[in-house]
Amino acid sequence: MADFVHEDMSELILIRSDVKDLIRCQSVCKSWYSLITSPRFINRHLNHSYNKDLFNNELGHRRIILLDDDDDHQLVGSSNGLVSAFSSKLLVGNPLTREVRHLNPPPWISLSLSWGFGYDSTTDDYKVIVGAWKGENQTCVQVLSLKSNVWRVIGEVKYIFVSEVGILFNDALHWIVRDENDKKLIISFDLSTNEFKEIPQPGDVRYECTSGSRLGIVKERLCIYRCEFSCVDIWLMKNYDVKQSWELLRHDHEMKYDIVHYLRTPPPPNDGSLFHPDKSWLRTLKYIDLHWDYIHAPLFVQSLVSPHVNVNH
C-alpha cells in the first residue's frame, strides 16, 4: 500500500514549521499551497508562534528594530508579524514573507510627533495611528485602517506626545505625554473604541517620570523605566491599569534571553525592499541582562500574515 500522510496530520506537521520552510512547502503541491495560504491555517500558525515563544523557557521576547539609527526612517510598530515603517512612504509588510504594501501618507507629515500600529480584533483590521502637532498643548490624532487605506481624524487631545512610538499592549497603544501643566502622564489608545484614557503611574516615592523615561514590555507586562548613567529602574505593572500593582524590578533580577531582529535600512531605490531580507537580515542579539536600548522596541512574532489580507475589492 502506498505511503501517505493524512491531511489532518500534514496540517499538524506544517503548523509547527518556520515561515521560511512554509514558503518553500507552498510549491510542493496544490493542496499544500491551498492549506498554507488559507486564513484558517495562517491564524493557527500565528497562535502557535505566539505560544511557542511564550512557553519557551529560554526566550523572553522577540523585538524588532531598524538596523541603522537614521532620522529619515521611522519604525511605526509591529503586530502579528506585520511591521509598519515610514521612510519616503508609509509601508506595512511582513519581513519574512517579503510582502509589502504602500499606504496613503498622513496629512501634515512634517508635523507628526508620534506613531502607533496595532491589530483591532473587533473588526479584524490593522490600524496606523499618527499624532500631529496642532497648537500649544494640542495634538491632532488620525487613524488609518488597512481595510480602508483612508485617514480619519478622530479628535484632538490636550497633550504633547513625549514618546515617538506607541507601545502595543493589551489591545491598546501606550505613550508618555505632557499635559498643559507640564505634567507627564501615561495614556492608552484603545484600538477597538478609538478612545484615550490615562493609565495610573506608580505611587511610590522612589518613582519619577522624567524626560528620559520610556515605556516598554518586560515579562509580559507593561513597564516604564528610565536610565541614568548605568542604572536602570524598571517598574512593572503586574495587573494592567491597577495603580497598586506597580512594582520595582530588582537590579539583581533574573531575565530570560531576548532576541532582537534587525530590519535593514535604508531601502534601495525600490523602496518596497525595506522589508526584503538579505543574508544578514535575521541577525540576532541575545542577552541575559535586559539592555535598556531595546526595552521599548516593538515585540515581533514570526507569521504568515499578509499586509494585503484585509484589502477590500
Rank of each mutant, 00 (worst) to 15 (best):
G60D: 05
A172F: 02
E164Q: 11
K20Q: 13
L66I: 07
P277A: 14
I288G: 06
P106V: 12
F117T: 10
M1F: 09
A172T: 12
Y126V: 09
R206A: 13
L290D: 02
D179A: 08
P307T: 14
V19M: 08
D289R: 10
E11C: 10
S112W: 04
I65R: 09
W115P: 02
H313F: 13
E254G: 13
S34G: 10
L299D: 08
L144I: 03
L46Y: 06
V128C: 07
I23S: 11
K279W: 13
H6G: 12
D3V: 09
L14K: 02
Y294N: 04
G155P: 11
Y126I: 11
A85V: 14
S31I: 06
N80A: 13
Y287T: 06
H276A: 12
D3M: 07
L146S: 03
F86N: 03
Y287N: 05
S188A: 10
H61R: 06
F275N: 02
G272Q: 06
F300I: 01
L282R: 10
S114P: 03
L236A: 08
S230V: 05
F229K: 12
S163M: 07
K158S: 14
Y257I: 11
N94W: 03
S192N: 12
Y257C: 10
D241E: 15
L248V: 09
Y257V: 07
D252M: 11
S145N: 14
N47H: 13
P268E: 09
L290G: 04
C223W: 02
H313N: 13
Q142G: 03
Y262W: 12
I187K: 06
I167D: 03
P106A: 15
E11M: 13
E164R: 15
C140W: 08
S121T: 07
V143F: 00
L299K: 04
Y159C: 09
Y294L: 04
W115F: 15
S34M: 06
V100P: 01
E136R: 13
L168W: 03
N51Y: 05
L290V: 12
R214E: 06
G135P: 08
C227G: 06
Y126D: 05
Q74A: 13
V242Y: 06
I288E: 07
V260T: 03
H6T: 14
W108Y: 15
V311I: 15
H6A: 15
M237R: 02
S121R: 11
L236P: 00
V130G: 01
F55P: 01
F55K: 13
H73T: 14
F161H: 01
T139M: 05
L144G: 03
V177D: 01
V128D: 04
W281E: 02
K243P: 01
Y33Q: 05
L12G: 01
Y225H: 00
R206T: 05
D3W: 07
L173P: 03
N47T: 15
I13E: 09
V28I: 15
W32L: 06
N270H: 14
D271Y: 11
I217D: 01
I176L: 11
I295Q: 00
F117E: 04
C223Y: 00
V309N: 07
F189Y: 07
V309P: 01
S49E: 05
S34W: 02
